[in-house]
Design a protein around this nucleic acid. Sequence first.
DNA 1: CGGGCGGTTGAGGTCAATCAATCAGAGTGG
DNA 2: CCACTCTGATTGATTGACCTCAACCGCCCG
Lengths: 216, 216
Amino acid sequence: MQVQRKAADRSFVALSRRENHDSLTLIGVTRTFGRDQAIFGEGDSAQFVYRVVSGGVRSFRLLADGRRQIFAFHLAGDVFGWTTGAEHASDAEALCDTTLIVARRSAVLDDPDQAPALARHVLRELHRSRDHLMTLGRRAAAERIASFLIECAERQDSPPEIELAMSRQDIADHLGLTIETVSRTLTQMQSDGLIHLNGCRRVRVVRPRTLAQLCQ
Amino acid sequence: MQVQRKAADRSFVALSRRENHDSLTLIGVTRTFGRDQAIFGEGDSAQFVYRVVSGGVRSFRLLADGRRQIFAFHLAGDVFGWTTGAEHASDAEALCDTTLIVARRSAVLDDPDQAPALARHVLRELHRSRDHLMTLGRRAAAERIASFLIECAERQDSPPEIELAMSRQDIADHLGLTIETVSRTLTQMQSDGLIHLNGCRRVRVVRPRTLAQLCQ
DNA sequence: CGGGCGGTTGAGGTCAATCAATCAGAGTGG
DNA sequence: CCACTCTGATTGATTGACCTCAACCGCCCG
């Protein structure tokens, strides 16, 4: 799975086709990025799109005073970097050491064979984005955290223990909360017996039902 | 522009092509809906997609306890009703008496000629959705109202006076606020000389610069 | 004129933010 | 190996923005 991690920055051509339900095909070079390294920035020309091979990515936008909203975390298999116009409308940074496949945007966008898959792909993104809107607009802090944990669990095929790829600050900026509220809520959930924290990056869901009820 | 408003509920075949930048073509019948009438509901089979001819639509989702999040308002020219799966993932209702063109979803989704336009269309939706996420996740009440007013103005080609198609409750459920906070904030903006309220559905922006600065 | 609905205004409460201190773990250098 | 530092996370105390509950207003329509 992990190709050339920490090796040469660019390696030769790689082909990637995701199996489950997204049939977008990306052909391009692989590149590696270190923790917090920028992949692209708002306003950069959007020549490329990306697929995560290993590691993780946050995509986000900033307000003038530094407030940050993380729209999505992209993990292994995810494709990201689409825009309407010629420029990126958000920033993207690696969460940790990360390997990506980098493909020319036009190669996918202008390929009529790929257009239906692209439309479906973006439609799924939009759906996820609307779940997220529901969370930010109408859910309380504990409900946001519960949704987030459940989403993380599902993306990892609901293992006994969730591995968080991101920091508390990232979670806070994803959920429209502060780092303190995230921390407090997790601690509270642990003392309520909902979850068990095993270090700050590992969460075992003890009562999945009760957690799920929190987000209705 | 307005076809058969307040006439028979179904009229004969209509063709619609939006001029500005969205080249999606919808062919289908026109239908009219009264204020607050459901167009489709969450879980309904998603056979059709829609274009607003006149009037307006809110699309939203509800939590079990009735909390509501409005994802978008669709006005004249807008196409809505796309989903990933076979079922709608949200509800849609008319804001007021509204005329729509109703087209078979499959006619557009499975048409390879339309796929690129669809991908671009959904990509624009996604972009708007992320603006909205920024607003809900990281902006204060006054900033949310300011963003909303500016968005409304832009969609109406920035006329001297904005015409609001939706109620205070709709605005509140769009911005993740309460009706009281919306009302208070508008009143405050008026006494600060930012805007002028001409009845509760008409807003004149007195100081567009200052208003824009509020959302950075 | 009276009722109803949508909107506004006021008073008080609450949840999450802010400000601040402390803690835990990883990495560094003596 | 042990201090020391640095960073990220946790915990505590207090504040404040927005919510809740409630009353009232104004307009429309019968």
